[in-house]
């Protein structure tokens, strides 16, 4: 089931004083058919029906090094902006569809492969100059959230602790505002943000060769793993290369989010994460007896 808040509930913030359930209607999309049984239990892949969209009607923003326009592996870029820093401060301005190194184009191409009919937008946060890159990342991400994009692909992170609190607040605002931030975990074992936050969908790389395989991590904080090794990607100059890293697993999941939202546009971010969880190749609904959690048995 997917849901959407109604106009009547928009003023609801802190409590339900004076409101009854009848005052809080929530309209939901029809859910998927029941999952078929498998020898190892019930396949959670029954939610596959939720993943059947093409991305049509979904606005995806790639926050990165820019996206090359008219690249055969990317197709149309519906909007290009850049974060610039000058005497007036840091701001977002419209720019040419260009990429300073190829990384953003690679991410956009993967999203296009997974969700071919989505709207693709770009905001360049790297490449203008080196200094202040953490500030530019924060500015670009905030701008993307304020624009109300449905999905934001962030194959970047910052190691600067001083940005963590502001990024955390921004990630939470995006979560409640139905902008899904899909963020790369750092490739190295380095503490960085915002992928560490529960309000984003965090992605790392598995080492399998299947480009469409994705897995749920039973031991987060990295929640999902997708194809990130030896990936054929679009690159600058209308070309392609092979590359590896979490950066290229992340747009796969961003593309999956676009597909899901195109068929179920009223889905909330927590529902989206549930669908990804249930459709991951390693998640099975089994008949095994449940293990008691450490807290069970403590409540009379």
């Amino acid at each position: 089931m997917t849901t959407a808040a109604t106009t009547a509930s928009r003023g609801l913030t802190w409590g339900l004083r004076g409101r009854t359930p009848a005052d809080l209607p929530v309209h939901a999309d029809v859910g998927p058919p029941p999952a078929p049984p498998t020898p190892s239990g019930t396949s959670a892949a029954g939610v596959a029906g939720l993943v059947g969209g093409t991305g049509r009607g979904v606005r995806v923003c790639v926050v990165d090094s820019g996206v090359e326009g008219e690249h055969p592996g990317v197709g149309p870029v519906d909007g290009s902006w850049a974060v610039v820093k000058d005497e007036a401060g840091v701001r977002v301005t419209e720019s040419a569809a260009a990429d300073s190194c190829g990384h953003g184009t690679a991410c956009a191409g993967i999203i296009r492969r997974i969700a071919p009919d989505c709207e693709l937008h770009s905001v360049r946060v790297l490449g203008e100059r080196f200094s202040g890159s953490g500030e530019m990342l924060l500015t670009g991400l905030r701008w993307a959230v304020e624009q109300g994009f449905d999905v934001v692909n962030l194959s970047l992170s910052t190691t600067k602790n001083r940005f963590a609190e502001e990024l955390h607040a921004l990630a939470d605002a995006a979560y409640f505002g139905r902008t899904v931030i899909v963020a790369s975990a750092h490739n190295a074992q380095v503490e960085s943000f915002p992928w560490r936050f529960a309000s984003v969908i965090s992605v790392g790389s598995h080492q399998e060769t299947d480009p469409d395989l994705y897995l749920y991590n039973p031991q987060p904080p990295v929640e999902f793993f997708a194809h990130g090794q030896n990936v054929e990607v679009a690159w600058i100059g209308g070309t392609s290369i092979r590359t590896s890293g979490n950066s290229f697993a992340t747009p796969f999941v961003a593309g999956m989010c676009a597909r899901i939202l195109s068929s179920h546009p009223r889905m909330t971010t927590f529902q989206l994460k549930s669908v990804l969880y249930l459709s991951a190749a390693n998640v099975r609904v089994s008949d095994l007896p449940q293990q008691p959690s450490p807290r069970e048995g403590t409540i009379p």
Binding site: G127, A188, G237
Partner: peptide
């Protein structure tokens, strides 16, 4: 700028690079 490592391959057939 990103603080991330990267591997790229097949660069010789990439004219821009």
């Amino acid at each position: 700028a990103s603080g991330e490592p990267l591997i790229v391959d097949d660069l010789r057939r990439n004219t821009a690079f």
